[in-house]
Design a protein around this nucleic acid. Structure first.
Length: 559
RNA sequence: UGCUUAGUGGUGUAAUGGUAGCACUACAGAUUCUGGUUCUGUCUGUCUGGGUUCGAGUCCUGGCUAAGCAACCA
């Protein structure tokens, strides 16, 4: 149980807010969801699910300069894909009229004023964390004038940037957010994606978020740690009108939303900033928001991460107030765990070299029945053609092998190697081209050693995989690796674009077994000894494309 | 030199005054028709000084360190 759940259980026991639990997930529709958002999603939706409450989806669309419906659609799609269910869909823009009316109330109560200074002047007066700020010369403007000017702002009579509405609080407050925060600014350059040109003034986050929570009846407004300093202001704004009669919330005068904060997610070798992701996309450093190297939900999905794996990962890392960085290795471990009992095993040869079994009849062919996953017969079987000529991995053969090399070799120790699901063979020699590269390997097989038969029970030091030459299919294989070359790109003083891993994508071709002809996008496979792969969205039966989700652990290569 | 938040193995997370545990990583061994998987074992930890207490990771107090906060972003 994490600390938020403890708070919720205590609130439930104390019957706070009539024992009601309501959360919200409040994305700004200005980018695609990433795995950091998933942590928040699992919290917001998870709390509601576990404690009999509801979690609504609320788009925090108070800045038309950055926001777009493109993002609204992708956000909804990604949440649903993750397996969560929202109650209602709301938009902060649903409350523009209520917020405007509320702002008028603030003005009438002498708690807000229209400032005509430039952004620079306001910033200069704000002071610093260690020095108090100074009052604006417009701070004590008469209420009637404030009212008239605010209405003029909304009427479109004032150009962008010429006036703002500020709360009149305390320019010397040690919390910078209390130094007369801006409540409203004028934006006429961009139409709003939902309200069009209806509004010329838009509320700032601090004046929109808490009030929206309040209008909706949110009980636990859960967010990340950078909002801790905003919490007193969140409470202050609500304090100013919470006792109004009639009550501005349908939930009554005893209801009160509360904000709680947890640590955001950081992962090694990646960035979790929407701004940086947008830059990678715009500058073509990745192929798009759904590039399989991106930490976005759509990127992870295209990479082959399952919703289950992502949710399990979030579950493992927990929620605290400690800011840290999670090992990318844990995410990879989680997806391997998830896929290992789901992904059918198939052969794919990345660097093929021909193997000829000289004592196997040239005109003969057989079909081997292989379990999709060894030891899990419920997952079915597939047919694998076998014949005299096979593709095997170049690195599975060495002319001169030492004792640490278990695989195929014509070395005089007479070693035997098993062909996965088939026969035991022994190398007899090889042919090389003028440069000395092996072009063909020759071997003999033991006809009595077929897998599943009595004679096949013999132990071999190694098993290698193969694809029969005639029936093999060609496939494009995209080998993805970590996006960044350094563990913590955000902490590096260099520009983050200089820190990209030059080997984050390697494209190669492979010979794959016939059974993959019918593979559909998003189908998961394990290429034996290579790793987990997923069929790319661009894949077609004529041009198969596989993305590497994660490699297999390899204790041998490491040495 | 302000306000806020936080310091438990390499990483993340438990222990709510009573044996510092779990997961990942690393290493070693066993098993294996994937050098995968599985199993077993090992290494490594309470930021620091003082105090309260029979007993402190936990409570009190001083210090140190880190992060966030000065957008007409959210």
């Amino acid at each position: 149980m994490n600390f938020i759940e403890e708070i919720v259980e205590k609130d439930l026991q104390e019957k706070k807010n009539d024992g009601r639990i309501q959360t919200r997930f409040p994305p700004e529709p200005n980018g695609y969801l990433h795995i950091g958002h998933v942590k928040a999603i699992c919290m917001d939706f998870g709390i509601a699910e576990r404690y009999g409450g509801v979690c609504n989806l609320r788009f925090d669309d108070t800045n038309p300069v950055k926001e777009d419906t493109e993002y609204v659609d992708s956000i909804k799609h990604d949440i649903a894909w993750l397996g969560f269910h929202w109650g209602q869909i709301y938009y902060a823009s649903d409350y523009f009229q209520q917020l405007y009316d509320l702002a008028i109330q603030f003005i009438k109560a002498g708690k807000a004023y229209v400032d005509e200074q430039s952004a620079e002047e306001i910033a200069a007066q704000k002071g610093t964390p260690t020095e108090p700020g100074q009052n604006s010369p417009y701070r004590d403007r008469p209420i009637e004038e404030n009212l008239r000017l605010f209405e003029a702002m909304q009427a479109g009579e004032i150009p962008d940037g010429k006036m703002v509405l500020r709360a009149k609080i305390d320019m010397a407050n040690p919390n910078m957010h209390f130094r007369d925060p801006i409540m409203y600014r004028i934006i006429t350059t961009h139409p709003h994606h939902r309200t069009g040109r209806q509004w010329n003034v838009y509320p700032m986050y601090d004046f929109a978020h808490g009030q929206s929570d309040y209008f909706e009846g949110v009980t636990h407004s859960i967010c990340t740690l950078e909002f801790v300093v905003h919490r007193p202001l969140y409470d202050w704004f609500i304090d100013q009108f919470v006792d109004n009669k009639p009550c501005l919330s349908p939930w009554g005068n005893n209801y009160r939303p509360r904000q709680f904060e947890f640590n955001r997610l950081n992962i090694t070798y990646t960035v979790m900033s929407k701004r940086k992701m947008l830059q990678l996309v715009k500058e073509g450093l990745v192929a798009g928001w759904d590039d399989p190297r991106m930490p976005t939900v759509c990127g992870l999905r295209r990479r082959g991460y399952t919703a289950e794996a992502i949710r399990t990962f979030i579950d493992k890392i927990g929620y605290t107030k400690v800011e840290g960085t999670i090992d990318l290795g844990l995410l990879e471990h989680t997806v391997r765990e998830c896929l290992k009992e789901k992904a059918p095993r198939v052969s794919a040869i990345f660097d093929p070299v021909r193997l000829v079994i000289t004592n196997y009849p040239a005109d003969s062919k057989e079909v081997i029945t292989a379990e999709n996953i060894d030891g899990i017969p419920e997952l079915g079987t597939r047919n694998v053609p076998f014949a005299r000529e096979l593709w095997i991995e170049r690195e599975d053969f060495r002319e001169d092998a030492d004792k640490n090399f278990y695989r195929l070799s014509a070395a005089p120790d007479g070693r035997e190697v098993r062909l996965k699901n088939a026969y035991i063979i022994k190398a007899t020699g090889c042919k090389k081209d003028a440069e000395g590269n092996v072009t063909t390997i020759y071997a003999t097989y033991d006809p009595e050693s077929k897998s599943g038969t009595e004679g096949g029970n013999r132990k071999t030091k190694a098993t290698i995989n193969w694809v029969e030459c005639d029936s093999a299919l060609d496939a494009e294989v995209r080998l993805y690796d970590r996006l960044f070359a350094v563990e913590n790109p955000s902490a590096d003083e260099r520009d983050f674009r200089e820190l990209l891993n030059p080997d984050s994508l390697r494209i190669t071709n492979a010979k794959v077994e016939q059974a993959l002809a019918s593979a559909q996008p998003q189908d998961h496979f394990q290429f034996l000894k290579q790793g987990y792969f997923v069929v790319d969205d661009d894949s077609t039966p004529e041009h198969l494309v596989f993305n590497r989700t994660a490699s297999l652990k390899d204790n041998w290569q490491k040495k």
